[in-house]
Nucleic acid binder design. Structure first.
Length: 203
DNA sequence: CCACGGATTGGCT
DNA sequence: GCCAATCCGTGGA
């Protein structure tokens, strides 16, 4: 059980730093979504950085539009977009206002509200024990399990509906680095960060 | 106005 | 491993 009150809600200044710094430090932090009587929580284990200044794969690489405008906020806002006509992906906006940078949440380790996540994601119960590793192991899967959609895009992560916490018991994380998955532009950038050996990673 | 492709996933060959 | 699903932003005619 995660204690969501005595832990520290990540403050604005955490998010306003450069995207690569924030991306790496997001590993191990806990993503929380509070609903009426339910709390959903997952420990972030895989992320990718996107930076509109130099990164052609970022939605913010071109000018501000209705779709990408949230990416131009200052750090600490939630950016959710719809893709392939099927899936949502959620991001953490970083940097100063108009930086156009964000971190994609690619995978989390489910901690709390797991039954509700299973219900939303599979619309049935688990077929096997190991299916738990397929629950939140990809960006679209995380959004399905948590119920994130574009209606949540633009939410302030320093408020108490959707937010991140730093657990008091810190543990060293073995960080792996690779190219980002599923993109063709700026594909050479090594901007994917993950916890080596964690069983909840994507793919 | 139309055609195309995408920060994905799951099912079928 | 390949490919359909299925919406929407973008770019060219």
């Amino acid at each position: 059980m995660i204690d969501t009150t005595s832990n520290i809600i990540l403050p604005r200044k955490f998010y306003k730093r450069p995207v690569l710094t924030v991306a790496k430090e997001l590993l191990g932090k806990v993503l929380i979504k509070k609903e009426n009587d339910e709390i959903l929580a997952g420990r972030i284990v895989e992320v990718e950085a996107y930076d509109g200044n130099i990164d052609q794969a970022a939605h913010s690489f071109k000018d501000k539009t209705k779709r990408n405008e949230v990416m131009f906020n200052e750090g600490g806002y939630f950016y959710v977009y719809f893709t392939y006509g099927v899936h949502f992906c959620c991001n953490i906006v970083t940097g100063k206002k108009d930086a156009g940078s964000a971190v994609l949440i690619r995978a989390v380790e489910p901690l709390e509200g797991i039954e509700l996540m299973i219900k939303r994601r599979f619309e049935r119960s688990l077929k096997s024990e190991k299916e738990i590793f397929n629950l939140t192991s990809g960006p679209g899967k995380v959004c399905k399990a948590f119920g994130f959609s574009t209606e949540h895009s633009g939410l302030d992560l320093t408020q108490n509906q959707i937010y991140l916490i730093d657990r008091l018991k810190l543990k060293n994380i073995n960080i792996g680095i690779s190219k980002r998955i599923g993109i063709t532009k700026s594909a050479e950038l090594m901007w994917r960060f993950f916890e080596i050996g964690n069983p909840y990673l994507s793919r």
